[in-house]
Design a protein around this nucleic acid. Sequence first.
DNA 1: CTTATCAAATTGTTCAACAATCCCTACATT
DNA 2: AATGTAGGGATTGTTGAACAATTTGATAAG
Lengths: 225, 225
Amino acid sequence: MSEPGSSNAHGETRPFRVRSSTAEWAAAILRQRVTQGGLPPGSRLAEDELTAELEVSRNTLREAFSLLGHERLLEHRFNRGVYVRVLSPDDVADIYRVRRMIEGAAVRRPDKDPISLTALRDAVSDAERVAAEGRWLDVGTADLRFHQLIVSFNGSRRVDAMMAQLMAELRLAFHAMDPRGLHAPFLPRNRELLGLLESGRNAEADALLATYLDDAERLLLAVCA
Amino acid sequence: MSEPGSSNAHGETRPFRVRSSTAEWAAAILRQRVTQGGLPPGSRLAEDELTAELEVSRNTLREAFSLLGHERLLEHRFNRGVYVRVLSPDDVADIYRVRRMIEGAAVRRPDKDPISLTALRDAVSDAERVAAEGRWLDVGTADLRFHQLIVSFNGSRRVDAMMAQLMAELRLAFHAMDPRGLHAPFLPRNRELLGLLESGRNAEADALLATYLDDAERLLLAVCA
DNA sequence: CTTATCAAATTGTTCAACAATCCCTACATT
DNA sequence: AATGTAGGGATTGTTGAACAATTTGATAAG
């Protein structure tokens, strides 16, 4: 290791000198555990356990909880503790309602940034490559990146941030499904969508995206309900 | 008073039995001071002062800061304290970019909830009434409510929440302007927009809204820059 | 005029204690 | 058996104090 630091029982290192706060460090660890499935939706996060395990004070841990709560990954019930969020069917429907709005608006835009287009190509290629290797979790990551990049055509920091939050929420639902069945059907459609975007056929891209999102929503609702 | 509670130097009562937390109570007070102009943008919020004034501990105050920071009303500079957010021209531009997207999408929707339409009528009438009385701050509130209701046609909790946050941010910029010059020009246009929505002329409503938002953005940018 | 140094003030983080609330269990009542 | 109602243990909410780290402003040296 090039950076000095203390390590805890789980091997996660905690740097001595960090620019960001200890709370953000703790939040990063918990975020990873949630998004990677180590902490399934509905799990309770007890303060006693985690302060001992992460070796941070209760106050810092609670600040980390607050951060993840605002990302909608954790749910804070007053006097009852924090839980990993459980997505309801209503949540899934709402998330896809927003996706249709902000991805649709992005796709319909006439002016597409060429730099983002190359990033888009990379995301599709990455997804196909890791799919060939059977790494379906990474396929999911590349897929989310693809759609995040589409949203970025809107050119709005705030919309980008909202999309990032929606993607984090969606990961919660992903863990309830077979990752291959979830992502495999959408790989060729991402490739097709990319082609339409490159050639500027915005109306067709819009239509394809709409059916794409409808199908994805249906898939998740079938599990989530 | 029907509810028992302790009161501080500013007359804000703090109920003994609350379902929500003390931090949220403190956040509510600070939120009010920010949105009503008591704390102008750029103000520093010193921990010492506020712990004494609100009679809460430093930890809970910092939790309140965290809450308002996530609402983008306060800005936290590491090791330098928290400040009331100052909107940059980029911020204003971004906010109106998002408004065009989510209000535009709402206006274009064919299915409008009749209940929301009556609420919309009330908002316009309220704005006109308080304008006649010269209460321009309340005009601003009614105007924001009008546009929040428009957004609600999208039928998405998350989009509603985003719009609420944008409105809170916009209030920050409002304080830098003469409230009459800011709101008076838009009263008749809200009335006109309402008429178009009621008669289902969505395309015309969309066009009117677009110029409305362009003009409003220009007005705020002139001050903010 | 610039740079270096130091002290005061403020924020970042932790800890320990106590208050408030929830949850579960046992018991009583119908 | 079902419901209701105290306890008591466990967990969270809140506080105040303490110390570390950083910024800030003033002062002194070059």
